[in-house]
């Protein structure tokens, strides 16, 4: 190969790396998918869903088959009697595995006044620096949009990053870009929790308004519950985020840095709920009894 051709070849290679570098710069700024990205994801998401379903099914059959063989060898004499019960049990367990997560969500939906929609997790991020999951929305295609909160019965999961068709990407709350306004009700203090990219756990920083007094009011302690504050409007108030795992008080006693252990096991998500709209605000006059005005007859002056 001549020097000129080699120069052209390497220049082209350099250019080919420069293009995705510019795309990366743009995607880090905007975070939105392009039309091409959406098209590829629309094709890939059902395939991922199918692979996930296939592997979960094969795994379930394998584990149940091995279990059945073991029990059979130990209970040879009672096989005939036990066979029917064992089959029923296996079927029930299979159904339970599939429906546990969804039943949990149904219960959550029943309890929650917010407008919500269920979704199944079909894939998870493969890069530790970016904690996202991909979900398949069961119904309501087109209703889910970026920014909507995602929860389970245990607590907050994250928010929708991007939605395409009946699939969406969710930024988990342990992603380094995730910021959640929270409050610790027992201490009466609030702040912003920032994901630290660790497998489990967030990093939080709470700035106190004044030095701590002798009564210890406003002190955050290990085990304190952390919930969303509702500030900023990104998440409705009162969703459980986790519990305080550790507290570091700075020497000048103006700042407490807290580590929060998540309420949700973010590594074992199977089904989630997307909040389409915040729950309606409580009626301020709910406590007061109101007398209906007479619909008929004469009204006294």
């Amino acid at each position: 190969m001549t020097f000129r051709r080699r120069l052209v070849d390497w220049s082209l290679a350099g250019l080919l790396i420069l293009v995705p570098a510019m795309v990366l710069r743009s995607s880090l700024k905007t975070g939105n998918h392009t039309v091409l990205d959406d098209a590829i994801l629309r094709v890939s998401a059902p395939l991922e869903s199918a692979v996930s379903w296939l592997v979960e099914g094969v795994g379930g059959i394998w584990s149940r088959y091995v279990g059945l063989v073991g029990v059979e060898s130990e209970n040879r004499e009672l096989r005939a009697d036990n066979e029917r019960l064992r089959k029923e049990l296996a079927a029930a367990q299979r159904r339970a595995v599939d429906t546990d997560a969804l039943a949990d969500l149904l219960e959550l939906k029943r309890r929650s006044p917010a407008d919500a929609i269920a979704a199944r997790v079909i894939a998870a991020s493969t890069t530790p620096q970016f904690r996202t999951i991909r979900i398949r929305i069961d119904r309501g295609q087109g209703e889910v949009a970026a920014g909507m909160p995602v929860i389970t019965s245990a607590g907050l999961v994250g928010k929708i990053l991007d939605a395409y068709g009946d699939h969406a990407d969710v930024m988990l709350i342990n992603d380094p870009d995730s910021k959640v306004n929270v409050v610790i009700p027992s201490a009466g203090r609030g702040g912003t929790l920032i994901g630290e990219g660790a497998d489990n756990g967030y990093h939080g920083k709470i700035e106190l308004e004044r030095p701590l007094d002798a009564s210890g009011k406003g002190v955050v302690r290990e085990g304190d519950l952390v919930v969303t504050s509702g500030a900023g409007g990104a998440f409705p108030a009162g969703i459980v985020v986790g519990t305080v795992a550790s507290v570091t008080v700075k020497s000048y006693r103006m700042v407490q840095e807290i580590e929060v252990e998540p309420a949700v096991d973010l590594g074992a998500l199977r089904a989630v709920m997307v909040l389409l709209a915040a729950p309606p605000a409580p009626d301020p006059d709910a406590e007061h009894k109101r007398k209906s005005e007479p619909a008929f007859g004469t009204r006294p002056l």
């Binding site: 790396i17 995705p20 570098a21 894939a123 970016f130």
Partner: peptide
């Protein structure tokens, strides 16, 4: 770069990250 781009999309990373690394 193409494989990296697909890895970004399927792996949930910002578009271009694994494409640059792949190159």
């Amino acid at each position: 770069v193409m494989v990296g781009y697909l890895a970004d999309l399927l792996g949930g990373a910002p578009t271009g990250l694994h494409a640059v690394v792949g190159g």
